[in-house]
Amino acid sequence: MSVMDIETVKPTEAQKKARRSRNIAIALALGAFVVLVYVVSIVKLGSAVLVRPL
């Protein structure tokens, strides 16, 4: 059986569009969360961010 014969599910245009919209939203949310964690770490710890018991 060649690769071409494998039955796969073909998304419709509407499904592709919806998936793209969800992907963009997840990317934005994830990016925002990363920025948030970064900024709050700096705000709460400041230069002490590197000070830790070894």
Partner: peptide, 9 residues
Amino acid sequence: LSEATAGDY
């Protein structure tokens, strides 16, 4: 294969 958009969520 959902047709749910980000707006639906």
